[in-house]
Amino acid sequence: MTEYKLVVVGAGGVGKSALTIQLIQNHFVDEYDPTIEDSYRKQVVIDGETCLLDILDTAGQEEYSAMRDQYMRTGEGFLCVFAINNTKSFEDIHHYREQIKRVKDSEDVPMVLVGNKCDLPSRTVDTKQAQDLARSYGIPFIETSAKTRQGVDDAFYTLVREIRKHKEKMSKDGKKKKKKSKTKCVIM
C-alpha cells in the first residue's frame, strides 16, 4: 500500500485542523484551538488504489514558523489553505509557496490551493482571484467548507493525484537520464 505524506499549511484560523478532522473523523470542530502540530493517518481508496494518507496539520501562528522547514522537508505534497473571508490569509499563500519551493529546492512541488469556509456569506476573496492565482502557479484550486464537508475529500484526493503525477514524471525523467548515460565512448 502506497503511503502519501501530505502537509496542510496556511495562516492561523483558516480551518486547516477543521478540514483535516472532517476528512479523518467526519465531524466539524467549530471551536478554535490553535494547533502546534498534529499528525493523522487514514486509509482510503483513490482511483481504485488503496493508500495510506499521513497528514500533518501544522501551526499557522507566526511564533511556530521555525518548525516549518522541518515538516516541509518531509512532506510530499501540500494543501495551501486560505479562508475566503480573510484576504490576508490569501496573500500569505505566496509566502508559504515560496518557502516550500526553497526548502524542497524545487520549482515543481505537488500543491493544491484550497479556499476554505465557502459556506460563509462574508467572502472577501473572489473565486476568480483564487483561480487566477492557482493557474499562475500551475496547481489545482478547490473551494471547501469544513463545516458542510463540501470539497473536503476532493481537496485531499486531488493532492494525492498531483503527487502521483509528480512521481510518474520524475521516474520518466530518471529513465531518460539513465538511457543517456548508457551511451559509451570508444577510443581507438
Rank of each mutant, 00 (worst) to 15 (best):
T2L: 07
T2D: 13
T2M: 09
T2K: 13
E3N: 09
E3H: 10
Y4Q: 08
K5P: 14
K5A: 07
K5E: 09
L6Y: 05
L6P: 04
V7H: 13
V7C: 10
V7W: 13
V7I: 07
V8I: 12
V8M: 11
V8S: 04
V9N: 03
V9W: 11
V9Q: 05
V9F: 14
G10I: 00
G10Y: 00
G10P: 00
A11P: 14
A11G: 09
G12R: 03
G12L: 05
G13F: 13
G13E: 15
V14H: 11
V14G: 11
V14M: 13
V14N: 10
V14F: 10
G15L: 00
G15Y: 00
G15S: 00
K16G: 02
K16H: 01
S17K: 01
S17Y: 00
S17W: 00
S17G: 03
S17V: 01
A18V: 10
A18Y: 00
A18K: 10
L19G: 12
L19D: 13
L19T: 14
L19E: 13
T20E: 14
T20S: 14
I21V: 13
I21N: 13
I21R: 15
Q22D: 14
L23H: 15
L23T: 15
I24N: 13
Q25S: 11
Q25G: 11
Q25T: 13
N26S: 13
N26V: 06
N26L: 12
H27A: 12
H27C: 12
H27E: 12
H27Y: 15
F28K: 02
F28A: 02
F28W: 09
F28I: 04
V29W: 10
D30I: 10
D30Q: 08
D30L: 09
D30T: 11
E31R: 07
Y32T: 05
Y32I: 03
D33F: 15
P34R: 00
P34E: 05
T35N: 00
T35K: 00
I36P: 01
E37D: 08
E37S: 03
D38V: 04
D38S: 03
D38P: 00
D38K: 00
D38G: 02
S39H: 03
S39K: 02
Y40G: 06
Y40F: 12
Y40D: 05
Y40H: 10
R41T: 09
R41E: 05
K42N: 09
K42A: 11
Q43W: 04
Q43A: 04
Q43F: 04
V44D: 05
V44A: 12
V44G: 10
V45K: 12
V45M: 09
V45W: 06
I46G: 08
I46K: 08
D47F: 03
D47V: 03
G48M: 07
G48I: 07
G48Y: 08
G48L: 05
E49A: 10
E49P: 07
T50M: 05
T50I: 07
T50D: 04
C51A: 11
C51V: 10
C51G: 11
L52C: 10
L52F: 11
L52A: 09
L52V: 13
L52E: 06
L53D: 02
D54N: 07
D54Y: 08
D54C: 02
I55N: 10
I55Y: 02
L56S: 04
L56N: 04
L56C: 05
D57N: 02
T58D: 02
T58A: 10
T58L: 03
A59W: 07
A59Y: 15
A59C: 15
A59P: 10
Q61C: 15
Q61K: 04
Q61L: 14
Q61Y: 12
Q61F: 15
E62K: 08
E62R: 06
E63V: 06
E63A: 04
E63P: 08
Y64M: 15
Y64C: 15
Y64S: 15
Y64F: 15
